[in-house]
């Protein structure tokens, strides 16, 4: 559908929130605790965090939760009985306050979960989500969406994208999908007709810092580079980067059993961990941190473009902000681009 542009007044956002609540919508919005923000089921407009450049956690949890029960099992004399997840139990959710680099990450995540195997739980969860994107009027030194094909007003992944129109606090609302239109239908009078066309002057300015195409080509001959060892020496091998990343999709499957019954659960996993993909034989395909760090970069900038025709990085900079030892992905990508093979 063509993108329909409307004006949403400053005071109308709260009214919109209330109307959606009156229509029994579940709204996940940024919530701050201990100075860190994440998307939570939110009951009041006043509880929503504002003014953030980027939330600490990505919004991927909504379609790819950190812990997803795949099935319940129980053992008895008659044998084993198994009950799969009821896809009808998945709630409709409005994801409120998502930055464009997060919203566009949904496309990349989806390309993984729709690759050789169609992941029904993920697909169903995502089908129930309506994304309210909010363009960026500010950026920081960790942001680099423009270097990986995005931009601070990118509509990809959003169902409605709100752009703050200067200090007065009104918003341009771009209604991008049928899902977005369905929300507008609930609150027609809040979405006023407008002749505003350009939003660019209201967006953060973010110069391109490297070329992701160049990185991809460079990586073809970079597998054996010593740069991986130098970059990763201070990496402590935790999973903070992967867990805040909007596109990291690796998971582990665990059985949580108590006596004769239990659940099979999908949990996030990270290539940073020393035991990631260790074989049952005990063989570890990546037995040093440099090989694990290389996997992280190669997966995002070489393997994904090759297999899925998308890059596995949206330039949100979360991993760099979250890293306890300043593994800064932007700095490292620029080094890779500059180092001679």
């Amino acid at each position: 559908m063509n993108i329909d542009k409307r004006l949403v007044r400053k005071d109308s956002l709260e009214k919109l929130f209330d109307i959606l609540k009156r229509n029994s919508k579940t709204i996940y919005a940024p919530f701050t605790k201990n100075g860190k923000s994440t998307f939570r089921d939110t009951e009041s407009f006043g509880a929503i965090s504002t003014g953030y450049i980027q939330t600490t956690e990505s919004a991927k949890d909504i379609a790819f939760p950190r812990t997803e029960k795949l099935l319940d099992f129980s053992k008895s004399k008659e044998g084993m009985s198994v009950k799969g997840t009821d896809l009808n139990d998945i709630p409709d959710v409005i994801l409120w306050g998502v930055r464009p680099c997060d919203a566009s990450g949904i496309g990349e995540l989806s390309s993984i979960f729709n690759w050789d195997y169609k992941d029904e739980i993920y697909i169903n969860r995502l089908s129930k989500v309506t994304v309210f994107g909010f363009s960026c009027s500010k950026s920081d030194e960790y942001c680099f969406c423009t270097s990986v094909g995005g931009n601070p007003g990118n509509t990809a992944g959003s169902d409605i994208l709100f752009t703050l129109l200067g200090e007065e606090g009104d918003y341009l609302a771009e209604i991008i999908t049928e899902k977005g239109l369905a929300v507008v239908d609930l609150a027609q009078n809040l979405f006023e007709k407008t002749d505003i066309s350009g939003k660019e002057k209201f967006l953060a300015e973010l110069p391109v810092k490297f070329s992701h195409e160049d990185i991809r080509l460079k990586l073809d001959k970079f597998f054996e580079s010593k740069e991986w060892i130098e970059q990763s020496l201070r990496c402590l091998g935790c999973g903070a980067c992967a867990y805040v990343c909007p596109t990291c999709a690796c998971f582990d499957i665990q059985d949580e059993a108590h006596g004769k019954k239990g659940s099979r659960v999908r949990c996030w996993d990270s290539c940073g961990f020393s035991h990631f993909t260790v074989h049952t034989s005990g063989y570890n395909p990546r037995n040093v941190q440099s090989a694990r760090w290389r996997q992280r970069i190669m997966h995002k900038f070489s393997y994904m473009p090759e297999r899925l025709s998308v890059y596995g990085c949206t330039g949100c900079g979360r991993c760099s902000r979250a890293c306890p030892v300043d593994m800064n992905i932007l700095e490292h990508l620029i080094s890779i681009q500059e180092v001679t093979v």
């Binding site: 935790c238 999973g239 992967a242 867990y243 306890p324 030892v325």
Partner: peptide, 12 residues
């Protein structure tokens, strides 16, 4: 509740 078990605490 927010802990996602990245084990940064353990690593550091």
């Amino acid at each position: 509740a927010p802990c996602f078990k990245c084990y940064a605490c353990r690593a550091a």
